[in-house]
Design a protein around this nucleic acid. Structure first.
Lengths: 218, 218, 218, 218
DNA sequence: AATGAATGAGGGTTCATTCAT
DNA sequence: AATGAATGAACCCTCATTCAT
């Protein structure tokens, strides 16, 4: 399951660089140079650069889903059937933190991958993720909806992506945002604090009533 | 101010491709092929690919800032000094819509640019944007804070970026999200409707109280 | 004969840049930018970059030949038929200085042109120069031979080019050499002084006896 | 130390083309085509075109300096401390010939490199050569001065460059000069003969007294 | 007489990938 | 299992030149 030796070095180097620069902007040369391995090693071990990206993705997505499912099962077994939004989001955040435990860049890469998956010509990646993790994610999303404000399907669809945007943007660019905060306020927050801060904000967003009238195009 | 002829064709083609694929993934050859102009035209008119990206950026940022400032001035002159969050966000959304009026991809490109600006090694772009538009944006942000829940500076800083993430993610990937919605719900929403839907969500997020205790790393 | 207006500006700018960087390394853009004229002006006035180079060449070669011929005629008319090498070389140096009078870079360009003419694939330039100035130069060379040491035709041919090398190298790179001298000896010599210094050296070289045995390839 | 395989083919092809056309005029595509290797091979093996030029330079400069130093040491050890100018120049010429032994174009390239090094904006190359070979050359130059006519430092500086000009010009353009000689005298001299012919000329030039009065600018 | 716009050709360089060893 | 050498394709950019005005 876990990579060892050369392959592990490559994955480690790739995570850092993907997190800092994005996937396209990171070259195989940069990765192998940082991992201190041969240039051909990426293709040897992962078939292609795309293969490496998927490997990096799976390394986190698997444990993440597993973690959430396990905690959810425990919670469901223990008591009643409805779980509050705050609690659900806290589960999610804890799971994300777990992913981050071994590598500071893991979360950034993961979020960047989600960003990438929503780009126009990335059907391949999108399908890969949906096929692998789609159904497991749906369960969790269904739980969230139960405690959100009542709303139409499409309204919920969009709100979910507002929420997803908050998470991916903040975590993709955590390094930069942290640096800015450090410069402006002379103290920077850790990932866990930011994740925690999101909970009330996202909760409020999902529970807000949507009763306003539309404005018209000028 | 507005480009004409070849330069305009280039900008138009670039907007579409940048919106669909991102900046790095889009090549000068793709742009000039789509614009049906010579390969060298990009360098002739914009100096470099980077120059073209900045040109595309300024085309929207200028009018956007101007629009917001103007509306804000009118509103301030007309009546009292405090403006509700909903109203402020509606101003913002209307201004964004205005930017989008002539080109469906304008907003996506603009949001992608913001995304790019937060990447680690993009200090150049970051500085360019701050120098050009920093102070004008600050004014608007200050207004927002007045009607947000009372909170520390750093808390506000992060919430602002949660909000920014929602906007950039949704608009960057509007094309894809719209396609998904269309497929799943057999009806797709226009940009303006999505922008409007954000208002109560973002408002609730900024006004939510932040009184919860931290959870600890597991 | 003399260029005016735009054409003159172009020639002036070209001389400087050709002198500093050589012909290939100097671009039409650099020339027109420095001359503060339109990019197309070079082609408009001189047909092509090559045409400009020839124009620059003729501007100096014409007066140079004329000057030498005139002085030579006066001297021949005035007195005896044999003129010393020193005197002939002094005529040449004075003529070169005359060429340099209006533009510090004229000599460098001229010498660089001679250098260029000896390159393998520059038959065009070679033929152009020979056709235009070949016979006039031959007369002067014949005078030189009269006061040189007695030697075979081929020996004289090579010595003449040793001499030519000294002149072209020193004057092509006068700017750099002057800067080095200035740095090392804290005083730099003017072109005229250098030209004068060459006379005894070149004279001695042409008058040296060539009576040594060959060495063998190791 | 010596290149093998593809790298050697590249160097060989580059030497010929550089000798014939100069550095700027020679394209990487020409080099790789002639060497019958992939276009990217130059960058793979030498980093850049500039890197290739330096590699070509070092291939000759190293052995050249070593050769001269070795011969000089032997000569110094064997007998008295003063060596005649003729003998010193013969050492130099033999060393140059040694460099030329394996490749007819080696000398031309080397001389063209020296020419290039004296151009205005080539400080990089100049510094590279000085740093690498400056001190070793100084020793030899000091020996030359001992048997030259007594003169001021600056006078010697210029005479040395008159001499350098003779050598670089003749050898840079040996191919062309040889062709001309062949056409005009129906027999061409080999490099070694030309090098030998230079010795008395250069010796006379360095030993000539510099006692003439200056002429004035007309 | 002069120019802004545009272009075809070609420049050096870099990419992910392959293959013989 | 791993690598040094090599490559085809594509990158952005710059060149001298042309053409309509």
């Amino acid at each position: 399951m876990q990579y060892t030796g050369t392959a592990a070095n490559i994955v480690r180097a790739a995570e850092t660089l993907f997190a800092e620069q994005g996937f396209t902007e990171t070259t195989v040369r940069q990765i192998t140079a940082r991992a201190d391995v041969n240039l051909a090693a990426v293709n040897y071990h992962f078939g292609s650069k795309k293969g490496l990206i998927q490997a990096v993705a799976e390394k986190f997505l698997g444990p993440l889903c597993q973690n959430i499912e396990q905690v959810l099962d425990q919670r469901m077994a223990a008591s009643d059937k409805t779980i509050s939004l705050e609690e659900l989001l806290e589960m999610l955040m804890r799971a994300l933190l777990g992913v981050n435990q071994n590598n500071d860049h893991a979360l950034s890469v993961f979020m960047r991958l989600l960003d990438l998956a929503y780009m126009k010509h990335q059907e391949d990646l999108r399908d890969f993720l949906i096929e692998r993790y789609g159904s497991r994610v749906q369960t969790f999303i269904a739980m969230i909806r139960k405690d959100a404000a009542p709303m139409e399907d499409d309204e919920f669809f969009w709100r979910l992506h507002f929420l997803l945007g908050s998470i991916t943007f903040t975590l993709s660019n955590f390094h930069t945002l942290n640096a800015i905060e450090r410069r402006e306020f002379e103290s920077g927050a850790e990932v866990e604090r930011i994740l925690h801060r999101m909970i009330p904000v996202l909760t409020a967003g999902l529970q807000a009533r949507a009763d306003r009238v539309y404005f018209c195009r000028i």
